[in-house]
Measured scan of single mutants.
Amino acid sequence: MDVFMKGLSKAKEGVVAAAEKTKQGVAEAAGKTKEGVLYVGSKTKEGVVHGVATVAEKTKEQVTNVGGAVVTGVTAVAQKTVEGAGSIAAATGFVKKDQLGKNEEGAPQEGILEDMPVDPDNEAYEMPSEEGYQDYEPEA
C-alpha cells in the first residue's frame, strides 16, 4: 500500500510541476504579447503594419512553449490582441483601416495563427491545408 501511495504522490508532483510550467509559459506569452502591443503603439504610420505582424510573430513563438489545451486559448487571445492593436492603430490615425491585415508588401496577414497546427491532446499534428499553395516548377 505504501508503494501505491508513494507512486500516487510522485504522479501528483509531476502534474503540479507540469501545471506550473504551463502557467509560466502562458505568463511569458502574455508578456511578449504586451511587449508587441507597446511596440505597435510606438510606431509611426509606416511601421504600424509591420508592428502588428511582430506582435503576432512574438506571440506565436511563445505559444510553442505552452502545451496542451492552453495553446488553443493563448492563440485565440493573441489573435484578438493583434486585431485590437490594429483597431487602436486605425482609431489613433497611425494607419488607414484599409491597410490593416496586410503586410508591407500588401499581402493579407489573416491566418497567421489560424494555420498553425495545434492539437490540445498532444496526440497528432496535421499540416495546414494546401489550398493556398501553388506547385513550383523550376525553369529549365
Rank of each mutant, 00 (worst) to 15 (best):
S42A: 13
M1N: 00
K6A: 13
E35L: 13
P120G: 08
V66C: 07
K45C: 14
V48S: 01
M5W: 10
V26M: 15
G93E: 02
V70L: 13
E137Q: 10
K32R: 12
T64W: 08
G47T: 11
G31S: 15
K10G: 01
A107F: 11
T59D: 00
M116E: 08
D119N: 06
K58I: 08
K58Y: 09
E61P: 03
K34T: 03
K43H: 10
G36V: 02
V52N: 00
V52E: 00
G36H: 15
G25S: 10
A76Y: 13
A89Y: 09
V55W: 05
G7P: 04
V118R: 09
G67A: 05
A17H: 09
A30G: 03
G31D: 05
A53R: 15
K58E: 02
T81M: 11
V71F: 05
K21Y: 12
D2W: 06
E130W: 07
E137A: 12
M1Q: 00
Q109D: 03
S129E: 11
Q109R: 09
I112H: 15
S42T: 03
A30W: 14
T92V: 13
G31V: 04
A11H: 01
L38R: 06
A107N: 07
T54C: 15
V40D: 00
Q134N: 07
V71I: 14
V48F: 02
K10W: 05
G86T: 10
V118C: 13
E46C: 09
A11F: 13
D135K: 12
K97V: 03
T81H: 06
E61F: 05
S42Y: 06
Q99C: 14
K12P: 01
Q62G: 05
A17F: 06
A30K: 03
G14K: 15
S42N: 10
K60L: 06
H50M: 12
K21N: 11
K96Q: 12
P120T: 10
A140D: 15
G67H: 03
K32C: 03
G67K: 08
V74H: 01
V37T: 01
K43P: 00
D119W: 14
E123Y: 13
V82A: 14
V55C: 09
K21Q: 12
K32G: 01
L113R: 13
T59G: 08
T22A: 06
K6W: 09
A19V: 10
G84R: 10
A91E: 04
V71H: 07
Q24I: 15
A56I: 12
E126K: 09
K80P: 02
D115T: 11
A27W: 11
Q134P: 15
G7C: 11
P108M: 04
K21D: 01
E104N: 15
L38W: 05
K60A: 14
A78F: 14
A76D: 02
T54I: 15
K12G: 04
K10E: 01
P120Q: 14
V118G: 12
V16T: 11
V55R: 01
T44Y: 12
A124L: 05
A27K: 12
T44R: 01
G67V: 13
N103E: 09
T72Q: 08
V74N: 00
G67R: 14
E126G: 11
T59R: 01
K45R: 10
G31C: 01
E139A: 01
E57W: 04
V52S: 03
D98Q: 08
G101H: 07
K23D: 00
L38C: 02
G132I: 09
Y133R: 01
G41C: 12
V49Y: 09
A124W: 10
T22S: 11
E130M: 06
Y136A: 08
V52F: 02
T72A: 10
E20A: 06
A107K: 10
I88R: 05
L8P: 00
V48A: 02
A11T: 06
Q24L: 12
Y136H: 10
G106I: 11
Y125G: 06
P138A: 13
L113H: 15
A107S: 14
G67F: 13
Y39N: 05
A124Q: 05
A53P: 03
A140V: 10
V63C: 14
A27N: 11
K23F: 09
G86D: 04
K58N: 07
G47H: 10
N103C: 10
D121E: 11
E83M: 05
I112P: 11
P128K: 12
D121V: 04
K23S: 04
A107P: 15
V37S: 03
A91W: 08
V37M: 13
E28Y: 03
V77T: 02
T92Q: 01
E28L: 07
P108S: 09
T54V: 13
K43D: 00
Q134E: 10
F4G: 00
E130T: 11
G132S: 04
D121N: 08
M1D: 00
G25K: 12
V49P: 02
A19K: 04
H50I: 01
I112A: 04
Q24P: 00
A19D: 00
G41P: 01
V52K: 02
E35R: 08
T33Q: 00
V55M: 11
P128D: 08
T72W: 03
K6R: 08
G47A: 13
G14V: 12
E126W: 04
K21T: 04
I88E: 01
A76V: 08
V63F: 04
G84V: 11
E104S: 15
V48N: 00
D98L: 11
A27V: 06
E61N: 03
A85N: 03
F4K: 01
V66K: 02
E13A: 15
E20D: 06
L38Q: 10
T59S: 06
A29H: 06
A76W: 12
T72D: 13
G67C: 12
G31W: 12
K12I: 02
A107R: 04
Q79P: 01
E110Y: 08
P128F: 09
V82E: 02
K96N: 07
A124K: 15
A11Y: 01
V15A: 03
Q99N: 10
A11R: 01
P128R: 12
E105I: 01
M5P: 00
E28I: 09
A124E: 09
I112C: 10
T92F: 12
T44L: 11
K23W: 06
Y136L: 07
T72V: 04
G41Q: 06
D135Q: 12
A53I: 14
K32A: 05
D121R: 10
V71N: 02
